[in-house]
Amino acid sequence: MKERTFFEVARNDYQFLITASILILWLGGAFLAPWLVPQNPYDLTSFDILDSELPPAWIEGGTRQFLFGTDPQGRDILSTVFYGMRLSLIISISAVMIQLMLGTFLGLMAGYLGGRWDSFIMRTADVQLSLSTLMLTIITLAIIKNFFAQEVYDRLAIYMIIMVIGVAEWPQYARVVRSGVLVEREKEYVAAARVVGVSPRIILFKHIFPNLISPLLVIATVQVANAIISEAALSFLGLGMPPTQPSLGLLISRGFEYIFSGAWWITFIPSFFLVVLIVTINILGGWFEDYFNPKLYK
């Protein structure tokens, strides 16, 4: 296994190929949304209330013009979904970047400084993990929301969500990095580097950090999926994105009440795209875990 490169293994695994192609399709659709989809859902002039609640094209009453039907405002669901997916992905990937940086930094500090810093950082991590990150993000955003007027919050929402999800999940990374540092620090090559007189900072970044990349990659992949779920949950509760810029979570939330009148597509089409996105990322994460088989330092 080890001698074969990532792509050699990947090429022969058809399950992986299918998952990866779906994911690429979804990602491509999301990021190229402005050039792909027929409507700009942020532009109020591009849709018409007279087209509201049309079913998808393959159902009686649907039209070719709106492949997945329309929502109560008359927006094309295909367009809102792709734009929404783009938002969800931008938010979750940015949030994971923050998690990664924060967690790695704190973990390196804890592992390398040791002593009081270590116990303070790791204690905080323990407590934060035991308090459930979902709860933390919901409460924090609820409070932030009350600090601002609605219009101001709506404008800042995307940054707030990124920050909150980014900060909430650092302990996992910090744990892995810290124990990785502790394990690697004892190894001969670090001792050798130290004897030769390499400075601690260089040892940390040049010698220890590369060993942590694969466990971090595995966590980060799964965390992208989790961040998408978190963002969707926050938007569903009305704490996330404003209605003018709906993410997938908000689209699902807004369509919810229409399932009682039979207009299932308003909520279930965004749901379908959301679930497929998360499932593929999770499968990919599991696959990374099997391939890199990082000794997830415990």
Binding site: A232, A233, I252, I259, F268, V275, V279, N282
Partner: peptide, 22 residues
Amino acid sequence: SIIGISMPVFLTGILLIYIFPV
């Protein structure tokens, strides 16, 4: 179980409501 982990909890709720009561 992979699909279950990937389903947001509110979505499961909505799906259940659509299938059973609706």
